[in-house]
Protein backbone atom coordinates (compact mmCIF):
# COMPACT_ATOMS: atom_id res chain seq x y z
CA UNK A 1 0.00 0.00 0.00
CA UNK A 2 2.03 2.97 -1.22
CA UNK A 3 -0.72 5.53 -1.58
CA UNK A 4 -2.88 5.97 1.51
CA UNK A 5 -6.47 4.86 1.18
CA UNK A 6 -8.74 7.77 1.92
CA UNK A 7 -12.47 7.63 2.59
CA UNK A 8 -14.60 10.67 3.26
CA UNK A 9 -18.21 10.78 4.40
CA UNK A 10 -20.59 13.60 5.24
CA UNK A 11 -22.31 13.52 8.65
CA UNK A 12 -25.69 15.19 8.96
CA UNK A 13 -26.64 17.20 12.04
CA UNK A 14 -29.05 15.72 14.59
CA UNK A 15 -29.68 12.66 12.45
CA UNK A 16 -29.64 10.09 15.22
CA UNK A 17 -31.16 7.38 13.11
CA UNK A 18 -28.33 7.52 10.62
CA UNK A 19 -25.73 8.07 13.33
CA UNK A 20 -23.37 5.17 13.62
CA UNK A 21 -23.50 4.56 9.87
CA UNK A 22 -20.17 6.22 9.19
CA UNK A 23 -18.53 4.19 11.93
CA UNK A 24 -20.09 0.97 10.64
CA UNK A 25 -18.98 1.77 7.10
CA UNK A 26 -15.41 2.64 8.16
CA UNK A 27 -15.14 -0.48 10.29
CA UNK A 28 -16.21 -2.68 7.38
CA UNK A 29 -13.60 -0.99 5.20
CA UNK A 30 -10.85 -1.62 7.75
CA UNK A 31 -11.94 -5.24 8.18
CA UNK A 32 -11.96 -5.80 4.43
CA UNK A 33 -8.39 -4.46 4.24
CA UNK A 34 -7.42 -7.24 6.62
CA UNK A 35 -6.39 -5.01 9.50
CA UNK A 36 -6.12 -6.73 12.91
CA UNK A 37 -9.44 -6.97 14.82
CA UNK A 38 -8.18 -4.93 17.78
CA UNK A 39 -7.21 -2.06 15.45
CA UNK A 40 -10.63 -2.25 13.77
CA UNK A 41 -12.38 -2.13 17.14
CA UNK A 42 -10.33 0.80 18.40
CA UNK A 43 -10.88 2.71 15.18
CA UNK A 44 -14.60 1.94 15.29
CA UNK A 45 -14.91 3.43 18.78
CA UNK A 46 -12.99 6.55 17.77
CA UNK A 47 -15.08 7.04 14.63
CA UNK A 48 -18.35 6.38 16.43
CA UNK A 49 -17.70 8.85 19.23
CA UNK A 50 -16.38 11.51 16.84
CA UNK A 51 -19.38 10.98 14.59
CA UNK A 52 -21.78 11.33 17.52
CA UNK A 53 -20.07 14.56 18.55
CA UNK A 54 -20.62 15.96 15.06
CA UNK A 55 -24.26 14.82 15.10
CA UNK A 56 -25.01 16.18 18.57
CA UNK A 57 -22.81 19.27 18.82
CA UNK A 58 -21.17 20.04 15.51
CA UNK A 59 -24.15 20.80 13.32
CA UNK A 60 -22.99 18.23 10.78
CA UNK A 61 -19.56 17.82 9.28
CA UNK A 62 -17.14 15.50 7.56
CA UNK A 63 -15.47 12.29 8.69
CA UNK A 64 -12.34 11.10 6.99
CA UNK A 65 -10.53 7.79 7.27
CA UNK A 66 -6.96 7.46 6.08
CA UNK A 67 -5.22 4.09 6.02
CA UNK A 68 -1.47 3.87 5.57
CA UNK A 69 0.99 1.01 5.98
CA UNK A 70 1.75 1.80 9.59
CA UNK A 71 -1.25 3.71 10.84
CA UNK A 72 -4.92 4.57 10.65
CA UNK A 73 -5.85 8.24 10.88
CA UNK A 74 -9.34 9.46 11.65
CA UNK A 75 -10.25 13.08 11.01
CA UNK A 76 -13.53 14.66 12.09
CA UNK A 77 -14.33 18.21 11.06
CA UNK A 78 -17.32 20.36 11.86
CA UNK A 79 -18.27 24.01 11.67
CA UNK A 80 -20.17 23.92 14.95
CA UNK A 81 -19.83 26.16 17.97
CA UNK A 82 -16.39 24.82 18.95
CA UNK A 83 -15.35 23.64 22.39
CA UNK A 84 -15.06 26.38 24.97
CA UNK A 85 -13.07 24.51 27.60
CA UNK A 86 -11.24 21.58 26.06
CA UNK A 87 -9.76 20.39 29.34
CA UNK A 88 -13.23 20.18 30.84
CA UNK A 89 -14.61 18.43 27.74
CA UNK A 90 -11.89 15.78 28.06
CA UNK A 91 -13.01 15.04 31.61
CA UNK A 92 -14.99 11.85 32.03
CA UNK A 93 -18.62 12.51 32.91
CA UNK A 94 -18.69 16.10 31.68
CA UNK A 95 -21.27 16.65 28.97
CA UNK A 96 -22.98 19.62 27.40
CA UNK A 97 -25.55 17.47 25.58
CA UNK A 98 -29.20 18.51 26.00
CA UNK A 99 -31.61 16.34 28.00
CA UNK A 100 -33.55 14.87 25.08
CA UNK A 101 -30.29 13.46 23.76
CA UNK A 102 -29.26 12.07 27.12
CA UNK A 103 -32.55 10.22 27.36
CA UNK A 104 -31.53 8.31 24.26
CA UNK A 105 -28.38 7.17 26.02
CA UNK A 106 -26.05 9.73 24.44
CA UNK A 107 -24.23 12.48 26.28
CA UNK A 108 -22.62 10.29 28.93
CA UNK A 109 -19.59 12.53 28.93
CA UNK A 110 -17.42 9.69 27.72
CA UNK A 111 -17.05 10.55 24.04
CA UNK A 112 -13.75 12.42 24.02
CA UNK A 113 -12.29 10.26 26.85
CA UNK A 114 -13.19 7.14 24.82
CA UNK A 115 -11.48 8.63 21.76
CA UNK A 116 -8.36 9.41 23.78
CA UNK A 117 -8.27 5.96 25.32
CA UNK A 118 -8.49 4.23 21.95
CA UNK A 119 -6.04 6.33 19.97
CA UNK A 120 -2.25 6.62 20.18
CA UNK A 121 -2.19 10.28 19.23
CA UNK A 122 -4.98 12.82 19.50
CA UNK A 123 -5.01 16.40 18.26
CA UNK A 124 -7.98 18.70 18.71
CA UNK A 125 -8.07 22.11 17.08
CA UNK A 126 -11.02 24.10 18.34
CA UNK A 127 -12.12 27.57 19.37
CA UNK A 128 -15.50 29.07 20.22
CA UNK A 129 -17.31 29.97 17.01
CA UNK A 130 -14.69 28.30 14.83
CA UNK A 131 -15.76 24.68 14.78
CA UNK A 132 -13.69 21.67 15.74
CA UNK A 133 -11.14 19.56 13.93
CA UNK A 134 -10.15 16.31 15.56
CA UNK A 135 -7.36 14.06 14.34
CA UNK A 136 -6.76 10.68 15.97
CA UNK A 137 -3.97 8.30 14.97
CA UNK A 138 -3.87 4.59 15.71
CA UNK A 139 -0.57 2.85 14.97
CA UNK A 140 -0.70 -0.69 13.69
CA UNK A 141 2.43 -1.50 15.61
CA UNK A 142 2.24 0.15 19.00
CA UNK A 143 5.98 -0.19 19.62
CA UNK A 144 6.69 2.55 17.11
Amino acid sequence: MSEPLVLELQVKPLDFLAAGETATHFKETLKSLGLPPDICRKAAIVVYEAEMNIVIHGGGGVMCLQVEEDKVTIIAKDKGPGIEDLELAMKEGYSSAPDFIRELGFGAGMGLPNIKKNSDELYIDTAPGKGTKLRAVIYLDKRR
Binding site: G20, E21, I45, L104, G105, A108, M110
Partner: peptide, 26 residues
Protein backbone atom coordinates in the same frame (compact mmCIF):
# COMPACT_ATOMS: atom_id res chain seq x y z
CA UNK B 1 -25.42 4.80 28.19
CA UNK B 2 -24.10 4.09 24.72
CA UNK B 3 -20.60 5.42 25.31
CA UNK B 4 -20.36 3.30 28.45
CA UNK B 5 -21.19 0.22 26.40
CA UNK B 6 -18.70 1.35 23.74
CA UNK B 7 -16.08 1.47 26.47
CA UNK B 8 -16.87 -1.63 28.52
CA UNK B 9 -18.70 -4.28 26.50
CA UNK B 10 -16.65 -7.44 26.01
CA UNK B 11 -16.59 -8.78 22.46
CA UNK B 12 -19.23 -11.47 21.90
CA UNK B 13 -21.28 -10.46 24.93
CA UNK B 14 -25.05 -10.30 25.40
CA UNK B 15 -26.20 -6.72 26.05
CA UNK B 16 -29.13 -5.99 28.36
CA UNK B 17 -30.61 -2.52 27.92
CA UNK B 18 -33.82 -0.50 27.93
CA UNK B 19 -32.60 1.78 25.14
CA UNK B 20 -34.87 1.19 22.20
CA UNK B 21 -33.67 2.91 19.05
CA UNK B 22 -31.66 2.17 15.97
CA UNK B 23 -28.36 3.38 17.41
CA UNK B 24 -28.37 0.38 19.73
CA UNK B 25 -27.79 -1.80 16.66
CA UNK B 26 -24.92 0.44 15.53
Amino acid sequence: LLSFIMRTAPEGAVWVTIQNHVNVAA
